[in-house]
Amino acid sequence: MDESERDQSSAARPDSYEAAVERLEEIIDRLDSGQAGLRETLDLCKEGKELVTYCAGELDEVGEGLKELRLDDLASKLDTASEVG
């Protein structure tokens, strides 16, 4: 991936899950309206699929089971790490 492609992909990445879902709903409304031409339809489908992938990734991140941590433990680890460092 060259620089421009990296820039483009990062620009296409939504700010948040909510932003992604909002854009996805816009896309589906536009497609459902039947007013999009072939090129626009294909572009919207591509963008929509990317958004679906992004949202699925976000959901997967919180779908692997609850991870319970204790603030005290985290603070201890941080202290240990700083001592070792």
Binding site: L31, D32, T41, G63
Partner: peptide, 25 residues
């Protein structure tokens, strides 16, 4: 966000996109 409902909704979106893309072509 209700994650369970969101997954179902996302699946519906994906299906709608598939239908739209294939249908358009």
């Amino acid at each position: 966000l209700d994650c369970l409902a969101a997954r179902e909704s996302l699946e519906r979106c994906a299906s709608a996109l598939r239908r739209a893309g294939e249908g358009a072509v």
